[in-house]
Amino acid sequence: MDDVFTLAGRRLGSRLLIGSSGYPNRQVMLDAIEASGAEVVTVSIRRISLEGYAESMVDLLGGRWTVLPNTAGCQTAKEAVLTARLAREALDIDWVKLEVIGDRETLHPDSEELLRATAELVGDGFQVLPYCGDDPVVCRKLADAGAAAVMPLGAPIGSGLGVSNPRAIERICARSPVPVILDAGIGTASDAALAMELGCAAVLLNTAVAKAEDPVRMAAAMKHGVEAGRLARSAGRIPILTHAEPSSPQLGLVGS
């Protein structure tokens, strides 16, 4: 499908972004990422093991895919800003999936800290992709602060609940001046299709593929789900009616 997506100045052929965490093993991860068709793969930034360090994600993914570092687990703007700067130094890349969570139980974004970190990182030259709530006002404030996209959650991280509040996501998409990427909550391919039908520019997911019984097969399903949803969105769906509307001609009925 010739449908180029520009995100933070990068031209992408796929509207699916995929995570690199939680796969049964390294080969399944690589095969699943390949099957997903994604060009952007998220990674986290973590302390090296004090005993030394194992194989590098840079060597594993670099060159083949574009790496997008996240600030997962950070609970303050200060932690997230330092993590983003470390990511830029480690990966020589100027974009970041900005995540500042409010608590470890819900993993829900802390909007106040997120806005603060977004403004600081934008001022520092970053392309900031903030993971945020499905709140149209917060999304607008993030865009106003210079975010390159907004990434509202569909449902809690890892939950697989899908898109809990489709009307809010639709509203955010309708008024956002920057691309909207549905991030978190996707459980299966129809969830990804729905997100695209609601007007999202892309979908970011991880657990739904990594923890599926067959991650490679689910990755392919997600690829098709995103493509189907995008096609349906651009095709213009029929209006929803509350009554039946016959699809066959009403003239020339036998016996009339």
Binding site: G19, S20, S21, G22, Y23, M29, T42, V43, S44, I45, R46, R47, I48, Y53, S56, M57, V58, V67, P69, N70, A72, L82, T83, L86, A87, A90, L91, I157, N206, T207
Partner: peptide, 10 residues
């Protein structure tokens, strides 16, 4: 001192 590297992540 913090010493970090990219790791698997979502």
């Amino acid at each position: 001192v913090e010493i970090v590297r990219p790791f698997q992540g979502g």
